[in-house]
Amino acid sequence: MPYVVWVAIALLVVLALVLAAGASRLRTLSRRVGSFPCQARPAGDPHAPWVVGIAHYAVGRIDWWRCWSLAPRPARVWERGRLVVTGRAPLDQAGQSDQVLVRCRYDDKDFELMMSSGAYAGLASWLESAPPGRRDLVV
């Protein structure tokens, strides 16, 4: 067989392996206990694109993973003591009334999260269950 055919076969095998690794990573992240779908974007620009991700409660922090990535580490980590919810608003996007827009601040950086109302209830409970003296984290 010509050299070009072998290169094409090798590229297809590599592509299949990358897709399988990505699908396995996404499945593993979404099936963890304490994980929930959560989209993120910088605050202040309503036209900024949402980045689809999966958030996961860890000990004293939330790890946020991009869905379409092969990174072995979370894209963002928010420690409970430094994360503040500054506002929330229900969304009605294409008939999905269960979505909530959550405005947050972390180390003087504002950003927005979009999640289900159930996920927001969990986030608010998690923040409010902080150690004594740190109950001002949710508006």
Rank of each mutant, 00 (worst) to 15 (best):
M1Y: 06
M1A: 03
Y3F: 15
W6R: 09
W6A: 08
V7W: 14
V7Q: 11
A8G: 07
A8C: 11
I9E: 07
A10T: 12
L11P: 01
L12V: 10
L12N: 04
V14H: 05
V14A: 07
L15T: 13
L15W: 11
A16F: 04
A16G: 10
L17R: 12
V18C: 09
V18T: 06
V18I: 14
V18K: 11
L19N: 12
L19D: 02
A20G: 06
A21W: 13
A23P: 00
L26G: 03
L26K: 15
R31T: 15
V33Q: 09
P37M: 01
G44M: 10
G44N: 07
D45F: 05
D45N: 15
P46W: 06
H47A: 07
A48D: 03
P49A: 15
W50S: 00
W50I: 01
V51E: 09
V51M: 10
G53K: 07
G53N: 07
I54K: 03
I54D: 10
A55M: 06
Y57D: 06
Y57F: 14
A58H: 02
V59N: 10
G60W: 15
G60M: 11
I62D: 09
D63L: 11
W64A: 00
W65I: 04
R66A: 12
C67N: 08
C67G: 03
W68F: 14
L70I: 00
P72F: 12
P72C: 07
P72N: 12
R73W: 14
P74G: 05
V77L: 01
W78T: 00
R80M: 05
G81C: 08
G81M: 12
G81N: 14
R82V: 01
R82A: 15
L83N: 05
V85I: 11
T86W: 03
G87H: 03
R88G: 00
R88L: 03
A89T: 08
L91H: 09
G95K: 11
Q96Y: 13
S97A: 11
D98V: 02
D98T: 09
D98F: 08
D98I: 04
Q99R: 15
Q99N: 03
V100T: 01
L101C: 04
L101M: 14
L101R: 08
V102A: 02
K109G: 04
F111I: 00
E112I: 00
S116G: 12
S116L: 08
S117W: 13
S117C: 10
G118Y: 13
G118H: 15
A119P: 05
A119S: 15
Y120N: 02
G122R: 09
L123I: 09
L123S: 08
A124E: 09
A124T: 03
W126P: 01
L127I: 02
L127R: 11
E128K: 15
E128T: 07
S129A: 11
P131N: 14
P131T: 15
R134A: 10
R135I: 02
R135D: 06
D136Y: 09
D136S: 07
V138A: 02
